[in-house]
Amino acid sequence: MDKKEALKILIEHSFVFTKDVQEKLIAGIPAMTLRDVDALGKLLASLKQKSIISYDADMKKINQMILVVEKEKGSV
């Protein structure tokens, strides 16, 4: 897989952009310099990785918060 292909995949599966921006970025990949491809690719890859790693811990926290808010709703 070359860097432009990898960037396309990361843009397609990124939750950072709106659909519109996603499409524009993908359309712009052929014209991007390798330096830009590298910079955007590294950013998206690290964001995706961070999100995957913290998913379980974040969901546990969120579920706990929902329970506390639910309990408070019954008592306020």
């Binding site: 897989m1 070359d2 860097k3 292909e5 990898a6 960037l7 995949i9 990361l10 599966h13 939750f15 590298d38 690719g41 590294k42 998206l44 890859a45 690290s46 995706k48 990785q49 999100s51 995957i52 998913y55 974040d58 969901m59 969120i62």
Partner: peptide
């Protein structure tokens, strides 16, 4: 939001992991 992102990742894991490795 987080669940949708994770589901998308799980469905396309090998492809996304491959792309992450490239960078």
């Amino acid at each position: 939001i987080r669940t949708e992102e994770m589901e998308d990742y799980e469905e396309n894991q090998s492809q996304v992991d491959g792309a992450i490795r490239v960078f």
